[in-house]
């Protein structure tokens, strides 16, 4: 299990991530009453990006991008091999730093602002992410994901506040509107393409694939809230993950971008109100 799961993650996560991305674009299009691209569109895009001429602004860019990718994949593999959850989250933040570096080495003002905002987003997410790990620890007495999935009851029953806080920052992590501060998925915005402005060809393809890995990893944390030792909980978890993803698409399509200051205030407020209160109750009840 310890070997098999990370290998499965390595192979299947980009497939699942790409399909989710394709569904995202299709559902978004349907919400706007358009036909939309085929479900496999993200794979076509990546295939094309690999076929194009490679343009780099500075040579270190490719290295930083690959490091970012490797770190994210490694984090995912760690998570699936059942090790310390806290460690995984630290690795995730480290990976984010490399994305920041790959944006700021280019000297482009757009990608520089994107990089700054990427760090800012990281700052908004971090409290909720760490509190989530803490919540699991208080509840189950372990940070190991392999122990957490063997719980007697689903964690969400005792940690609903943490779940809400995590869902909130999931939108930030997925860089979706209203929190698509660091990259813009839509054209003609002040940022051009944010952190990805100076990425072209295969580098952009790497970024895309890494995003799929990261999305699958974040959704796996959502699943962790549901999983318990009953095998049926797996089905439950899949349904909850799909519902979560749909919710993200809905929010993405119905909201305009928020100011980054506001994002910080809001995300910390939600984290304290939901996860913080839940934490206090958890400690008192125990």
């Amino acid at each position: 299990m310890r070997i098999l799961m990370p290998i499965l993650f390595l192979l299947l996560a980009p497939l699942a991530g790409g399909l989710l991305d394709g569904m995202d674009r299709k559902i978004s299009a349907r919400m706007q009453r358009r036909v939309g691209p085929p479900i496999l569109q993200p794979f076509y895009d990546v295939q094309k990006l690999f076929a194009k001429q490679r343009i780099v602004v500075t040579n270190s860019q490719t290295f930083l991008m690959i490091t970012y990718m490797v770190l994210i994949i490694f984090t995912g593999c760690m998570f699936y091999s059942g090790v310390d959850m806290l460690m995984c989250f630290f690795m995730l933040s480290t990976a984010g730093i490399f994305l920041y570096f790959s944006a700021v080495v280019t000297d482009s003002p757009y990608s520089y602002i994107g990089g700054q905002r990427e760090l800012f987003q990281e700052m908004c997410c971090e409290p909720a992410v760490l509190l989530t790990a803490l919540g699991f620890y208080i509840l189950e007495g372990s940070f190991q994901t392999s122990d957490l999935i063997k719980a007697d009851r689903s964690a969400i029953l005792a940690l609903p506040g943490f779940f809400v806080a995590f869902l909130f920052i999931l939108t930030i992590k997925m860089r979706k509107s209203p929190f698509d501060e660091s990259t813009s998925h839509h054209p003609h915005q002040e940022l051009v393409k944010g952190v990805t402005t100076e990425l072209g060809g295969s580098n952009l393809a790497l970024f895309q694939i890494t995003e799929w890995y990261e999305n699958v990893l974040m959704l796996s944390v959502v699943a962790l809230f549901i999983l318990n030792k009953n095998p049926w909980s797996i089905l439950c978890a899949v349904l909850v993950v799909l519902a979560t993803y749909f919710l993200e698409i809905l929010i993405d399509n119905t909201s305009a971008r928020m100011k980054s200051q506001k994002m910080l205030q809001l995300s910390w407020a939600v984290t304290i109100a939901a996860a913080g209160v839940n934490l206090v109750i958890l400690i008192l009840v125990r």
Binding site: R34, H188, K193, T197
Partner: peptide, 22 residues
């Protein structure tokens, strides 16, 4: 690119970035 004509069904993306455009 709007709902009536929807060029995105061909995979068209209107990007603002010359480095990523075809």
């Amino acid at each position: 690119l709007t709902p009536v004509y929807d060029a995105e069904r061909f995979g068209v993306v209107n990007t603002a970035d010359p480095m990523q455009a075809d």
